[in-house]
C-alpha cells in the first residue's frame, strides 16, 4: 500500500468506519445511560433546577474561585490551555472547518494558520506538562490507569501529527496527513468507550449536579 492508497483509505473507508463507530458508540452509551432512570424529587424545591443546571454546564467552563484555583492551579491552567488549544485548532483551522461543513452543513470563519500553529504548540506543551504531572503528582500517579495514558496518547496524537504534517516534519506530507487523520479516527473509535466520552457526558454530569444544587438554592 503506497501512501496515496493509505491516505485514500483513511479519508474513505476508515473515516466512515470511525464515524460509524463514534455515532454508534455514542448512541449506545447514551441509551444505556438514559434507561437507568433518575429518581424523582419530592422535596419542596427552591427552584426547578433548569436554570441552575444550564448555569452549571456553562459556569464550570469559567475559572473556579481563587481558593480552588490556588490549590489546583497547575491542572487548571494546563487543562485550559490543552482544551482550548485542542478545540481552537480543531474548530478554527480552515481545513477542519471545511470538513465539518461537509459533515454538518454549517460553516464559520477560521483563524490564520500561524495563529493555529502557535495555539497547537501551546496545546502540545500543555499536554506534555499534564503528562509529566500525571507521572509526578502523587494523586494522579495513584489514580492513573492504562486508560488514562491511552486517552492522553489518543488526544495527543492528532495534535502532534497535525503539527508534524503542517510543518512537513519527518514524513512526506500525504503520509503524515494520513497518519493525522488516522489518529483522529482512532480517537473517534475509542472515544465512546473510554473517559474521552466526557467530551459529551460532562453536559449531563454538570447538568444533574447543577440542577440538584439549584433545587436546594445553591449555585455550584
Amino acid at each position: 500500500m503506497n501512501y496515496t492508497e493509505f491516505l485514500l483509505w483513511v479519508r474513505g473507508p476508515a473515516f466512515h468506519f470511525a464515524t460509524a463507530i463514534l455515532v454508534l458508540g455514542l448512541t449506545l452509551r447514551f441509551l444505556e445511560m438514559l434507561f437507568l432512570g433518575s429518581p424523582r424529587q419530592y422535596a419542596a424545591v427552591r427552584s426547578n433546577g433548569i436554570a441552575g443546571g444550564i448555569r452549571t454546564v456553562i459556569s464550570r467552563f469559567a475559572p473556579p474561585e481563587p481558593g480552588v484555583f490556588q490549590r489546583s492551579w497547575f491542572i487548571i491552567v494546563a487543562g485550559y490551555l490543552f482544551h482550548l488549544g485542542f478545540f481552537i485548532s480543531f474548530f478554527l483551522f480552515a481545513p477542519h472547518i471545511i470538513l465539518l461543513k461537509s459533515l454538518l452543513g454549517v460553516s464559520w470563519p477560521g483563524l490564520p494558520a500561524p495563529v493555529i500553529n502557535i495555539i497547537t504548540i501551546i496545546s502540545l506543551f500543555a499536554m506534555i506538562t499534564l503528562l509529566i504531572n500525571r507521572w509526578y503528582y502523587p494523586v494522579l500517579r495513584f489514580l492513573s490507569d492504562f486508560e488514562d495514558y491511552l486517552s492522553w496518547t489518543l488526544a495527543f496524537l492528532p495534535l502532534f501529527t497535525g503539527y508534524l504534517a503542517f510543518h512537513h516534519i519527518w514524513l512526506p506530507y500525504p503520509l503524515m496527513l494520513a497518519l493525522h487523520i488516522l489518529s483522529v479516527e482512532i480517537l473517534m473509535i475509542v472515544l465512546p468507550f473510554t473517559k474521552l466520552i466526557h467530551t459529551f457526558t460532562f453536559i449531563i454530569a454538570r447538568w444533574t449536579n447543577g440542577a440538584r444544587a439549584a433545587q436546594k438554592g445553591v449555585q455550584v
Partner: peptide, 22 residues
C-alpha cells in the same frame, strides 16, 4: 442505586485529581 447521573459521572471523570485538592 445506579442511575443516569451516576453513569454520566463515571463516564465523565478524567482522573484530573482536582477532587483530591478539595
Amino acid at each position: 442505586n445506579i442511575d443516569i447521573s451516576i453513569a454520566a459521572y463515571f463516564q465523565s471523570c478524567v482522573h484530573c485529581g482536582m477532587c483530591a485538592d478539595a
